[in-house]
Simulated scan of single mutants.
Amino acid sequence: MKMNPAHQQGSAKAFTLIFWLLLMGSLTLFFNGFIEQKNNPNRHLVETGAGATDVVLLRNQAGHYVAPGFINGYEVTFLLDTGATNISVPATIASKAGLKQGRQAMVTTANGVVPVYATELDTVQLGGITLQHIQAHINPHMSDDIVLLGMSFMKHLEMTQRDGTLTLSLPGI
């Protein structure tokens, strides 16, 4: 049985279209992973060191240290910010993590003076480091889903920065 030439041509076009769609989809997945790796090279944070309490972070392409972590068991992405006095949690994340909004305060940010709300975090975890009862504030003016990990957490750690890496550890361990 011979196939109709018009039918053969239609099948060839369909297979060509499917091929290109699969190729484009594969390339999109590959490059999304590539871009994510450049923006957050620590997305698969591994605990290192004796007792797994040292955390080694790689600097991203913008020169920042970004890493996954947890606030009260809720998964977040941290941007380490030694210029921030407290941990600053966007209101959308605070709501999802069940944080209680406390007293209003005014803070100075890169975008000017804004009102924020005090809160206390039961636990903050970054790799193998977990600290309890950490002061933070809820910032309704932060539009993204990145938590600024400020000095209310970092002041409890020893920090060593060398060759594009930052090593965090608990003192005396």
Rank of each mutant, 00 (worst) to 15 (best):
T160S: 07
L149C: 11
G83A: 06
A136E: 08
L17K: 13
V107S: 07
F15Y: 12
V56E: 09
G150S: 06
Q104Y: 03
A105S: 13
A105L: 14
L58G: 00
Y117F: 15
M1V: 04
A97M: 12
T165C: 02
Q132E: 13
Y65K: 09
V76N: 11
I138P: 13
M106L: 14
Q104P: 04
A97T: 08
D145A: 01
T167H: 11
L99F: 11
G164W: 13
G128R: 08
Y117N: 06
V116P: 12
V147T: 03
G98M: 07
F70M: 11
M142A: 12
E120V: 01
L80C: 06
Q135C: 03
G49C: 12
Q132I: 01
P5A: 06
R59H: 10
N4M: 04
N40D: 12
I146K: 09
G112S: 00
L29P: 01
A105V: 11
I87C: 02
T82Q: 08
H44T: 00
N139D: 14
T119H: 11
F78T: 04
M154N: 13
N60A: 01
N86E: 10
V124Y: 08
T16G: 08
T82M: 05
P68V: 02
A52N: 10
A118G: 00
A67P: 08
T130G: 03
P41A: 03
V147K: 08
E75W: 02
H141K: 05
D144M: 01
K13N: 08
T82V: 06
G51L: 07
I71C: 05
R162G: 00
G73D: 11
Q8T: 10
E120Q: 05
T92Y: 13
L27M: 15
A50G: 04
V116T: 15
M1P: 13
P171L: 04
M3K: 12
A50C: 02
V76G: 07
V147M: 09
T85S: 15
L79M: 06
M106N: 11
P90I: 02
A12S: 00
L170E: 06
I173W: 15
P68N: 05
N111A: 01
Q8N: 07
T119W: 15
F153E: 12
F31H: 11
H44P: 00
A105C: 05
R43L: 11
M3W: 15
G172Y: 03
Y74R: 05
G127L: 05
F78L: 07
G25I: 01
K100C: 03
L166S: 05
T109W: 14
N86G: 00
E158D: 14
K38T: 01
G127V: 01
S26G: 14
V89Q: 07
